[in-house]
Amino acid sequence: MNLFRREMKASRKSLLIWIVGIIAMVAGGMGKYAGMAESGDSMNELMADLPKTLQAVFGVADLDISTPIGYYGVLFLYLLLMAAVHASMLGANILSKEERDKTSEFLLAKPISRDRLLTAKLLAGLVHLIVFNAAMWASSVLVVGQYAAEGESVAAPIAELMLGMLLVQFVFLSAGFAVAGAGGRPKRAVAISAGVMLLTFLLSVAVEVSGSIDFLRFLSPFQYADAAEVIESGLGLGFVLTGVAIAALCLFAAFVGYRRRDIQV
């Protein structure tokens, strides 16, 4: 528990900064909606005139941006990217920093097993994800609710989107964990983890743009929480299962790899 507590305390400040960023992103992003809503359907038409590729890049292809939740769906892609950056960096950093800062020689001379060390770090990471997600959830419901018409419920689709975000966060946290735990290059773990995350983002954009490589959707967690789809019909069970399986595999690799390898000092 001491390790867990220490981890929570050490990253308190950075988590706080992220939360401020979340609120700013959600409030700032939705703030633009107020101005746009007045122009009514013309915005939808303008977007429809854009080339298909650009629509895909902006994520507006299948969303009705004249409604608050539709507009939020466009914004969601960027919120999701933000969550992915946070999770992939957190997962790699929380573990690799001990080796990078040469504190692992201190820590592992203590009477704890590597499994226990990893478990404590993983728990701390998960709590971070949940706090991050909760802040996103709360600020989204509050802000989007401001623009919602009388009687229109935005809480349900937002809840679904947030669960999707949590899934994506979990996958990237686990991937970062695997890179830092099983990989032999703790100094570059954060960069590699973020790189992998960006690659899957590009893949996700490519899938949107081409429209003909749908079978690759499972390879990019960003596709698991596609806003238009989730708002329309909820999270896909296949994506949830795939995400959980990938995360489990990553965590397994992290534990086994970390147990076996030499600690770099």
Binding site: E105, F106, K110, P111
Partner: peptide
């Protein structure tokens, strides 16, 4: 983990948080 309960270690280079 068991034997390290009774070990005190001073590394050559001291890096701490």
């Amino acid at each position: 983990p068991e034997i390290k309960k009774e070990i005190g270690y001073l590394p050559s280079e001291v890096f701490y948080y």
